[in-house]
C-alpha cells in the first residue's frame, strides 16, 4: 500500500517535471505530523482513513519554483499548488490501490508552527522522499 502512495506521488510530481528520489518506508504506532505545511485528505466509504502530506521548506520552495518560475505570487497561490499535488496524488493512489467504494475528500491545507497533531491513534504507514534539498513525508492510516 505504501508503495502505491509513493508511486502516486512520483507520478503527480513528474507531471510538473519534478523527480522525487530516495524513498524510505516506515511504520509508526500513531499517525502524527511534524511539519509546518501539511495537506490533509480524508478517505471515506468501505475503508475510512486519512492521508497526510507534509512539505518542509525545501520541498515547498522546489515545487513553487518549478511550477511558478520567477513569478511573484501570493502565499495562498503557492499553497494551492501543494493542495493540487496532494489531491492528484490521493486520486492516483485510489486508482492504483484498487480500493473499492472508497472516496477522497478535498484536501485541507494546514500552515503553522509548533503544532501538536493527533491524526489517529492507530498503526500508520509512512513514506518519506527527497526532492532536491527538500523532504516530503506521506502518512496513511485506516480506521
Amino acid at each position: 500500500m505504501t508503495q502505491h502512495l509513493y508511486e502516486a506521488l512520483k507520478e503527480s510530481l513528474r507531471m510538473f517535471g519534478i523527480e522525487p528520489f530516495s524513498p524510505v518506508e516506515y511504520q509508526g504506532s500513531q499517525h502524527i505530523v511534524e511539519s509546518q505545511i501539511i495537506a490533509i485528505v480524508g478517505l471515506t466509504g468501505n475503508k475510512k482513513g486519512t492521508i497526510t502530506v507534509e512539505f518542509d521548506e525545501g520541498a515547498f520552495d522546489k515545487i513553487v519554483k518549478t511550477l511558478m518560475p520567477g513569478m511573484d505570487v501570493e502565499f495562498s497561490v503557492k499553497l494551492s499548488a501543494l493542495s493540487e499535488i496532494a489531491n492528484m496524488m490521493s486520486g492516483n493512489f485510489l486508482s492504483r490501490s484498487k480500493l473499492l467504494a472508497v472516496d477522497i475528500t478535498p484536501p485541507t491545507m494546514l500552515v503553522g508552527k509548533n503544532i501538536k497533531a493527533i491524526i489517529a491513534n492507530i498503526d500508520t504507514n509512512y513514506v518519506s522522499c527527497s526532492i532536491d534539498s527538500g523532504t516530503i513525508v506521506i502518512g496513511m492510516s485506516f480506521q
Binding site: I40, P106, P107, L110, K113, N114, A117, I118, Q143
Partner: peptide, 21 residues
C-alpha cells in the same frame, strides 16, 4: 454523505486553507 475520521490539532496559530470551496 460519508465521514472520514477526525484529526485533532493544537497550537497557538494554525491557518487552515481550502481551495475551490
Amino acid at each position: 454523505i460519508r465521514l472520514a475520521p477526525p484529526s485533532v490539532f493544537s497550537g497557538d496559530e494554525m491557518n487552515f486553507v481550502n481551495f475551490k470551496v
